[in-house]
């Protein structure tokens, strides 16, 4: 047993072998299931990515819509109310919000499935849980950016020239807000893929995070290793894409 796991080698030797194998795509076998841990992890990857990307997209788009609507509204109350709701939402940890949604929509109303990933309907509650958190986050960011550009000279110039308010917001304030927020969003999206661990536990979602926690509780470390490596790779890929996106969106950055 010890020999087959290579435990007789020195620590440095074990780590060196891990690196060599990792580069070749071999992250070791799961101790419990004696299949390749990388295969186990990759099998879970789609579910994790789907949940993260859909929640992010829904949250990001709705945040933009709400922020623009708030900016266009003539009553400042609207903005204040939206921000207060965002604060309330952020004061509820995601896992707790998920349980409350399950309570209301599955247990009481019996409308939506609470656990597992079986149909399109299964997505509703987890996505609602995560995306509301994302909305609150990005609404806050967009709102802060708008509040700053609202008093800027270029906005006042445009308004003084007679450009309609909606056009100023959508053509000037929004693009200027978008650039820095996309950088933040890139990092956040990467973090989200691995950060949904607890949500996956609540909804019994067959994602990466749950696999890693199972790996931890069953002391099946090759799984944990493979999971962390895969999440790191996903993170790097996402940030690379964001950098490319940045080059497309920002007129000041042009790829040579």
């Amino acid at each position: 047993m010890r020999t087959s796991l290579g435990l007789n080698d020195s620590l440095a030797g074990q780590y060196g072998r891990f690196l060599v194998d990792a580069v070749h795509g071999d992250l070791g076998n799961s101790i419990r299931q004696s299949t390749s841990s990388l295969a186990l992890v990759l099998q879970r990857l789609p579910a994790a990515l789907q949940l993260a990307f859909i929640s992010f997209a829904v949250g990001f788009v709705l945040a933009i819509v709400l922020a623009v609507a708030g900016e266009l509204s003539t009553r400042p109350r609207v903005r204040t109310a939206m921000l207060s709701i965002a604060t309330v939402r952020q004061a509820i940890p995601p896992y707790l919000f998920g349980i409350l949604l399950i309570l209301v929509f599955s247990v009481w109303a019996g409308l939506l499935p609470a656990l597992g990933m079986n149909s399109a309907l299964s997505f509703v509650l987890p996505v609602a849980t995560v995306s509301t958190f994302e909305i609150a986050l990005y609404l806050r960011l967009f709102n802060a950016s708008f509040a700053e550009s609202r008093r800027s000279d270029y906005v006042r110039t445009a308004l003084a020239k007679g450009v309609p308010h909606s056009r100023v917001v959508i053509r000037h304030q929004l693009p200027n807000a978008l650039l820095p927020i996309i950088t933040v969003a890139g990092i956040n999206l990467g973090v989200l893929v691995g950060g949904l661990v607890v949500i996956e536990m609540v909804f019994n979602w067959p994602g990466l995070g749950r696999l890693i926690i199972e790996g931890v509780t069953q002391r099946d470390y090759p799984i944990v290793q493979a999971g962390v490596v895969v999440i790191a790779v996903v993170f790097i890929v996402i940030n690379f894409i964001v950098d490319l996106l940045y080059a497309v969106l920002d007129p000041r950055v042009r790829l040579a």
Binding site: V193, V216, N239
Partner: peptide, 15 residues
């Protein structure tokens, strides 16, 4: 450190 999901990091550390 910011790029690593905190909860995940803590799970591994606590484990």
């Amino acid at each position: 450190q910011l790029a690593i999901p905190v909860v995940l990091l803590l799970i591994v550390l606590v484990a």
